[in-house]
Design a protein around this nucleic acid. Sequence first.
DNA 1: CCAGTAATGTTAGTGACTAACATTATGTTC
DNA 2: GAACATAATGTTAGTCACTAACATTACTGG
Lengths: 198, 198
Amino acid sequence: MLVTNIMFMGNAAATRALLRERAMALFLEQGFDETTTAQIAAAAGVSQMTFFRYFPTKESAALDDPYDPLIAGLVAAQDPALPVRERVRRGLLAAWSSLPEPEDNAVRDRIVLVAGHPRLRAGVWENNHRTEELIVEALVQTGAPDLEARVAAGACLGGLTAALFDWAAGPDGHSLGERLRTALALMAPADGGGGARQ
Amino acid sequence: MLVTNIMFMGNAAATRALLRERAMALFLEQGFDETTTAQIAAAAGVSQMTFFRYFPTKESAALDDPYDPLIAGLVAAQDPALPVRERVRRGLLAAWSSLPEPEDNAVRDRIVLVAGHPRLRAGVWENNHRTEELIVEALVQTGAPDLEARVAAGACLGGLTAALFDWAAGPDGHSLGERLRTALALMAPADGGGGARQ
DNA sequence: CCAGTAATGTTAGTGACTAACATTATGTTC
DNA sequence: GAACATAATGTTAGTCACTAACATTACTGG
C-alpha cells in the first residue's frame, strides 16, 4: 500500500468521507470553480477515477441531503383532516425539529458555499424536486388531489429554501433553526402575511 | 460568403434565432444529452465557436424567460396594504394574465423538454432565483420585511413552478393558463387548502 | 496458501467551454 | 470607389468534467 491512511480505515466509506472532507476544504479555501477534481483526488491520496466512483459529479461532493424519507414520513403522519398545505408545513416543521440543531461552523460554511454558487444551488433545487415527489406521493395516498399536493409541496419547499439561502447571505443573529421556523410560520394558512409573528 | 442564408438576414439576431431554432429541433428529435453543440452549430451552418458566442451554455439555447422585469413591476404595482404574500400572488397572476395564452405546440414542447431534464430544470430554478431577487427588491422598497418578502416570493414561485412541471408531465385537458391560475388560487391566503376554488 | 471479491489504478477518449488570434462582411466617409 | 472602422465569424489549441474498458492491488474466508 503506497499510502497508509492516517485514520486507518481501509473501507470504502472512509475513502468517501475523506474525499468529501478534502473537497469541502478546497472549495472553501480557493473556490468551487477553481478547484479541480484532480486536486481533490490528489488531496485525498487517490486517483481522479476514484473520486468519480464515489461522487457522480463535482457538485455532489459539496451536497448531501439525506432527509427526504424523514420528511415524507412526517408529512404523511400529519392529521389528514388538515388542509393539504398545512400538512406539508407541519411535516417540514416536525422534520426540522426532529433533527439536532447544528451549531458548528462546518454546516454554516457548507450552506454559505452552496448558496453562493449557481451550480450548487441547482443541486439543492434538484434535491427539493425529489423531496417534492416524495411529499406528493405521501399526500396523494391519503386522498389529496394531485395538483394541490404538488403546489403545496412546491410552495413550502420554495419558501423554506429561500429562507435557507437568505440565512446564508447574511447572519442577523438568529440561528438557522429559528430562521427556518420563522419562514414556516410565515407560510401558515391563517397568517395573511401581516408578519405579526416574531 | 460561403453560405448564403435561406432567409437573408445577416445580422446577429437572426443567427441567434436560427441557432435556437435548430437547437430545439435537435433536442426534441434526439434528446438533449444526445445533441452536441457541434451538431447544433452545423445545423445552423456556423462554427461551434459562434454557438458559444450567442449562448453561454448548451442549456441556455433551450431556455428563455424574459419576464422578470414584467413580474417585478406588477408585484410592485399591487396595493401595499395587502399582505406581502398576497401581493406576490396577485402580481404573478397579473403577469400571467398580461401575456397572450400560447396555445401553439412549440411552447408546450419546450416546457416538456425542460421539465424532463435535470439540468434544464436547474436552469428554470436559477431563473426563478433571479426573479425572486427582483420581487424581493420591489417589495422591500415598499417597506416589507426582507425575510417575509423572500419567503413569499420563494413560496409563490415554488408553487407556480411545481404546477408548470406538473402540467408538462401529463395533460389533463386544461390549458397551461388554467393550470397556473388554479395553482395561484391554491396559494390564496384565505384558502386553507380545502381546494374549493375551481 | 489460494481463490474470490472489494477497492483502486491506468489509459484513452468525448464533449462542454475558453482564450487568442486571424479573417471576412458591412456600412461609412471622403 | 477606395480606405477604414466595426460587426460577425472562423481557426486552433487548450482545460476540465466525466465515461468506458481493462489491469492491478489489497483483503477475506476456506
